[in-house]
Design a protein around this nucleic acid. Sequence first.
DNA 1: GTTGAGCGTT
Length: 169
Amino acid sequence: MVSVKTPLLFVASVILAVIGFFVASLILGEGSTSIEKSMFAVGVILNAVLIFILSSITKTTASAASTSVTSSAISNDDDHDDESDEDVSTLYVGNLPYRANEQIVKEHFETFGYVRSVRLMKDKRTGKRKGFGFVEVSAQQADSMIDKLNDSEFQERTIKVRPAKDKVA
DNA sequence: GTTGAGCGTT
């Protein structure tokens, strides 16, 4: 946002400084020193900064409409996490075997209902699975799937299935 | 290549 407009401010300041320097040469006359001309140019730069701040505040308000239009065009999430169509609820599943991947977990959950997506949490550094994850299922079948899958056997382990905290649509 | 209670990611 600001980082995009910062080069513009720099270029504008330089241009205005050059213009201000020559304007100062005309106004102040031949007897003026280069310091006086430079001070005039500094004043022009400060004006440019002030105009930039005011315009940025104005564009922040004005860009709200254009941003909403742009964001609607940007928000084309082609991923599998598009929740705009289905009514899904996220389930927390814990005590998973480390060797279980997302595909086998999804297949196991699909035996009891619709599964939107499966995300098994991994360590950010090593990338190894941490033994729990989140499964987005149909909100209509969520309670039924929890009842069927919680404390059930999966890969020689008793998994825990509960409604996920926070991020609930 | 190991471990075992846990509520995360863009």
